[in-house]
Design a binder for these strands. Sequence first.
RNA 1: GGGGCUGUAGCUCAGCACGGUCAGAGCGCCUGCCUGUCACGCAGGAGGCCGCGGGUUCAAGUCCCGUCAGCCCCGCCA
Length: 614
Amino acid sequence: MRLKRTHFIEELIREDFLGKEVVVSGWVLRRRDHGGVIFLDLRDRTGLLQVVFEEGVAQEVFDIADQVRIEYPVSVKGIIRRRPEGMENPKIPTGYIELSASDVEIHNTSKTPPFPMDEDLSQVSEATRLRYRYLEMRALGGHSPFIFRHNVNLAIRNFLSERGFLEIETPFLTKSTPEGARDFLVPSRLYPGKFYALPQSPQLFKQILMVAGFEKYFQIVRCFRDEDLRADRQPEFTQLDLEMSFVDEEDVMSLCEELLAHLFEKTLGITLSTPFPRLSFDKAMELYGTDRPDLRFGLELKEATDLAKEAQFQVFRGAVEKGGIVKGLAAPAHFSRKELDELTKYAQELGAKGLAWIKYTKNAASFEEKWASPIVKFFPREVLERLEERFELRDEAYTLFFVADTPQQTNLVLSELRKHLAERLKLIPEGMFSFLWVVDFPLFEWDDEEGRLVAVHHPFTHPKLEDLDRLESEPLSVRSRAYDVVLNGIEVGGGSIRIHRRDLQERIFKLLNISQEEAEDKFGFLLQALEYGAPPHGGIAFGLDRLIMLMLGKKSIREVIPFPKTQRGQCLLTGAPAEVTLKQILELHIMPGWKEPSTQGEKNLLKEGEEKDE
RNA sequence: GGGGCUGUAGCUCAGCACGGUCAGAGCGCCUGCCUGUCACGCAGGAGGCCGCGGGUUCAAGUCCCGUCAGCCCCGCCA
């Protein structure tokens, strides 16, 4: 390297560089060749600078400049000078200066990039961008999500460090735990037939750190879950994990509010209003049909089971007789028949048997026009009037939508319909950050597939103290000391106060149908640690990718992860997952080319294995 | 495991409903010209397994079946 950078481009904006000789290094964004004068727009991480090769420069330098193409990395020596009168470019910060080149060094050539490097790449297919992720990042603006992410990490570390938290690392090669998501497994070379698991979260280790007396721990840490992907789910993702000792829910939640407020202030300059609103799980389900409601808009659900009972509508009655419920929402709009069919189809795709609708017009000429719907004839006039009251129909035009089904199904369909209608009717304000806490979750839920109770949060979550005496008698009525942070309808964090005494932890395991042997085998180290003076403790984990995605207004966490996987779990850049040599496989004592069992004998073997596992 | 959308030039896409001037556009790229441009301009040019395989047909980007890949969703996953 003959020419060595003396300055980054953004530094050169300062007046005192005028007339000074500097060397800048970077990539050529654009080239404008006028025959006798060549302009290069040179880009480094900090900015964009116009370089001019013109009359007076040595012929061999000009000849080299003539060979430069887009995306060549080059260094240029020259004098910074003010641009001639009328030649300024107000679009860029360096638009009033330019570098009058006296020397240039081409460090490398470049093939023509597969997509333009100087415009918005959001129109380019994601697959192409992922395959050439390094070019997408290098392109204009391509660094910014990752610079932002750096700033987020820095703000978090500064804030927590200031508050006495210690960042402590925990292992990636650890032990598989039952409960929760499927583990990624790593076969052990030294112990044939044994496996490490990649952590789904550092949960157990952070609890051990509390037993170890660190008091306040945090970590920005990768977690792994071998489940199917979504726009907001990757097999490896990053959590901000933290845990504190001698605290209760309020301590953790208020710390989180301060942390998030600090974060938004430092990185976006946005002041969040704290404390965040709180909603119990039951209330959230009642009003929104989901435990992670988007509060940026209204469209609250209303129960109408009682009114449905008074109508002659068989669809509603049948559902109620089978123990179902009827709920609905009022969208402030009228829809065409075609739109109503589309909405019905949408509801059916979510598993609804149908979608009942009533078109309401407040100041209609007649009662028939006020309540227009194929089902309205089944409703006594008085019931319709009570619907008007219940749904608070104050404006001129509404369409009421109803679903009648099991509570779970009804809530699922209506919560999705609510979001769908809000988007469609443009009820969601731009640029709004609507945080809330969801609290008072049930501790357990019934898993039909497994025929046993499972933990809603995780098995280490502390039950509510006032519910403790019902733990064995009415486990499904017991609430937990867990809390979720929801931002704009997406869960961005969740945590709980943990069990810190062995006897209670064992009672929970028992209710979860985890045998004493299994508990000892899988969590013996934790149970033992709890016996050595484990302090009361609790914490939380934030999905950092999701949080950053929302802060930047992106639609997918892939946009804020430098090298993400596709929906089928592939890395388009490296081609992972990939085959390995037979030698590597054999060293791990595993079978190459293993496929789904096809014969009955193979299936029996698999079944035995599963039973042993659980 | 299931549902939906997409796949045509390096990139973005049109052409598919009704099979036959249907291998097209814009941008990019290459060559030449050009001393003040900044999305420079002008002139010329190259570039195609119409994702892949099979089928129907005299004839298939176009219709049918399968398959692969990307995206969104359900299941799964906090």
